[in-house]
Design a protein around this nucleic acid. Structure first.
Lengths: 97, 97
DNA sequence: GAGTTATGGACGCCAATGGCGTATACTTCT
DNA sequence: AGAAGTATACGCCATTGGCGTCCATAACTC
């Protein structure tokens, strides 16, 4: 299997894990179904470095999200949703002059 | 003076305060010049409630930003920058189906 | 092979934020 | 007068952002 397929599978597994963890105990029940960052990035065929730079997300933060160590908060989730749906427009909108 | 003008002035003062506080001591030197949330919202002539709902930002979080109690982190700042430059597209992108 | 570069996974640490709540005040309505 | 809408102000605490470092793997170049 190619490395690309492998990555996609891992991404799926991660997404499933997220869907499962509903944060029953805490107060945090995400209203925005949080998008799979890695899937979005791979669909754009960008490296973590490039993706982070293009959308002005600190690289360590992006890594944390993709590794499942941190969960994007509500504003970040909304941002990612916007990126997912209109990648180009957003990239242009936040591009450095 | 109309209330609208007054709000704009306050918004300006707040922006100036932000520009001044460079966070010399801390580690946090924002790379994205953080946009003035209130100015953006008022330019769209939306209430805090509507703005928060439209862009999927929790209302208390929006309030914290506008009151200067909290500063949007990097991903949020990028999101706000995108909203500032392409308000309509972003609103449609994150709209609930 | 050895070295270099790019990529990304894993983990520790700390201050700052998010998210929720309540209370107060000021308009603008009915 | 009361109700509804808007906005400021503040407390609390778990969680996150942002930084750092180390390590592993490819894909080059010398």
């Amino acid at each position: 299997m190619g490395k690309f397929g492998k990555e996609l599978i891992e991404s799926m597994q991660q997404a499933a894990k997220h869907a499962a963890g509903k944060k029953v105990r805490g107060l945090r029940v995400s209203k925005v179904e949080l998008p799979d960052v890695k899937a979005i990035r791979l669909s754009l065929r960008m490296s973590q470095h490039h993706f982070a730079a293009a959308y002005r997300i600190p690289l360590p933060t992006l890594k944390n999200w993709e590794q499942g160590r941190r969960v994007p908060d509500a504003p970040a989730a909304a941002y990612l949703l916007a990126i997912k749906r209109r990648p180009k427009e957003i990239m242009e909108a936040v591009a450095r002059p």
